[in-house]
Structures are given as structure tokens and as C-alpha cells.
Simulated assay, not measured.
Amino acid sequence: MDATAHHYAVTVADLDRAVEFYRDVLGLEVLTDFSVGGEAFATGVGVEDASADFVHLDAGGARIELVEYDPQGDARTESDLHQPGGTHIGLAVDDLATVYEGLPDDVETLSEPRTTESGTTICFLRDPDGTLVELLEP
């Protein structure tokens, strides 16, 4: 098999709110939006009578897919990075200090930017649904 990456998906509770965050706060460009439903989709995702609205965003060589399902599942509890199954989205920026200073006050961060022993400066924040997003300056 010669698998290649197509997209990285995040299920969200409110697609419009999530798009505002990823587009307006993080600066990602919306590539496309679409809806999918029907028996084949519901069977494929393993959710009875499922339909979903999607938005694909350009993250500079990576495609991030935001998806809002109907019906919605139960909200998951926040996971920490060190827990098995913990996930996050990593986005490189040129000037993390400036990006951090420009974040809206309501964006939750785990800490101010910190330079690790590898020389990379990192800052983790949470999107509106609690998904961790790592901003890093290599």
C-alpha cells in the first residue's frame, strides 16, 4: 500500500464557531465546504442516520477537516497530551511571540510561549471545543 496523507479531521460541536477560530484566529484559508448524508455515509461512519457538514482548511501543505455531525455524539472529556490517545494539531508560525500577543483574550492557552531544549518555541492552546493546537516556531 502506498498511503499518503489527505486530511486531518476534528469533530466540532458548532462548525461556524470552529471555522471562525481556525480562519480568523489562526489564519487558515477555507478551501471548501460541503455536506454529506445518506445510508452509505451513515453506514461508513458507523452512526445511524448520520449526516455531516464539513469545511476543509489549508494549513500550508496539510488539509484540516472540521466536521459537525447530526446527530452529535456526547462531548468527550478533555484529554491531556501525555494520555494515550491524546491528540493535537501542530501549526508552524514565523514569530510565535507576536502571534501569542495577538490572540484574543478568550483563547485558552496552556502557557506562554516556551523554548524547549531542542530550540523550538512552543505554545499550546485550545480551540472552542477543547482540541489542543500547538503553535510552534522551529
Rank of each mutant, 00 (worst) to 15 (best):
T109N: 00
T121G: 01
L125D: 04
L103N: 02
S51A: 14
S35I: 01
G90M: 03
F21L: 09
L91M: 06
T87G: 12
F34M: 06
H82I: 05
D106H: 11
D58W: 14
D105W: 01
G85H: 11
P138V: 09
P71M: 05
T87V: 14
V45P: 14
T87I: 11
S79H: 11
A75G: 09
H6V: 14
P128Y: 08
S51T: 15
E65R: 09
Y8I: 15
L125A: 10
L125Q: 05
D53L: 02
D106M: 01
D16S: 14
Y8L: 15
T109Y: 02
A59W: 12
D70I: 01
V133S: 05
I122D: 03
L136Y: 15
V36E: 15
D129T: 05
V25E: 05
E20F: 09
L96S: 03
D74Y: 02
M1E: 06
V67R: 06
G38V: 01
D80A: 15
H56N: 13
T77G: 13
D129A: 08
Q72F: 02
D94C: 01
A40Y: 03
S118P: 00
R114H: 11
A40R: 14
D129Q: 06
E48S: 13
F41E: 11
F21Y: 13
L15S: 05
T120P: 04
V12L: 04
E39Q: 10
G73A: 09
G90N: 05
R126Q: 08
P113C: 05
G61V: 08
D105G: 13
F54A: 05
A40W: 09
G90H: 08
P128M: 07
D95K: 02
P84K: 08
E29A: 13
P113H: 09
V19D: 07
D14E: 08
E117G: 04
V19L: 13
D95W: 04
L96H: 07
H82K: 06
A59T: 09
V67W: 00
T109L: 01
G102Y: 03
F124E: 01
D70W: 02
F21P: 07
D127T: 07
F21S: 10
T115K: 12
F34H: 11
E108P: 00
G85W: 08
E117H: 12
F41Q: 09
D106I: 00
P71N: 11
A52Y: 05
A92P: 10
P113M: 06
E117D: 12
E108C: 00
H56A: 10
S111K: 03
G60M: 05
Q83V: 04
L66K: 06
A75E: 06
V99A: 09
L66E: 07
T116M: 14
L91H: 07
V67K: 10
L135F: 06
L136P: 01
A97Q: 11
D49T: 10
S51N: 12
D127Y: 08
R23E: 14
E29S: 13
V10Y: 10
T109M: 00
D74P: 10
M1R: 12
G44A: 11
A9N: 06
V67M: 14
V25K: 10
E29P: 01
